[in-house]
Amino acid sequence: MSTLLFAVTGSYPLAVALLVIGGLANLAAMSVGQTVVQLLAPPGDRGKMLGVYGVSASGLRFGSGITVGLFGAVAGIHWSLGLSAAAMCVGTILAGLPVLRDYRRRS
């Protein structure tokens, strides 16, 4: 969400603050994700699982950079970044719906 707001803001101080918030959120999310992978991985495969997690996270970030950059060359960087962030928000909501349904079913 902070990336989407960063893409549409016209205020430099607000943009810097949103980048800091986004960076902190990214750091927290990566740390929590790595912790969950480490806790759920079988002890014998823990190193392999963490390696795959790290490679896939970096690979997805690289792919996003390419798509945002290429689309930014065509449509403009603000539109490219804004649409990418909006797609990520929609994807997160769609991925969370089955979890929410399962949670409500169990309650």
Rank of each mutant, 00 (worst) to 15 (best):
L5Q: 00
L5E: 00
L5M: 02
F6L: 00
A7V: 00
A7F: 00
A7T: 00
V8S: 09
G10Y: 11
L14S: 09
V16S: 10
V16Y: 03
A17V: 05
L18Q: 01
L18W: 07
V20K: 08
I21R: 00
I21H: 00
G23R: 13
N26A: 07
L27E: 02
A28D: 04
A29Y: 10
A29I: 09
S31R: 03
V32C: 07
G33Q: 13
G33K: 04
V36S: 05
V37W: 06
Q38E: 14
Q38Y: 06
L40A: 06
L40P: 00
A41V: 02
A41G: 00
P43E: 03
G44H: 12
G44S: 14
G44N: 13
R46F: 03
G47E: 14
G51D: 07
V55N: 10
V55T: 14
A57Q: 13
G59M: 06
L60E: 11
R61Y: 09
F62L: 07
F62R: 14
G63N: 06
S64M: 11
G69C: 07
G69Q: 13
L70K: 04
L70Y: 09
A73W: 09
A73Y: 11
A73V: 05
V74F: 09
V74K: 13
A75N: 13
G76A: 02
I77M: 09
H78C: 06
H78A: 15
L81M: 15
L83K: 08
S84W: 08
A86P: 02
A86M: 15
M88K: 11
C89E: 13
C89H: 05
T92F: 12
T92D: 15
I93N: 08
L94C: 10
L94V: 13
A95I: 13
G96S: 08
G96N: 12
L97P: 04
R101K: 14
R105P: 01
S107H: 06
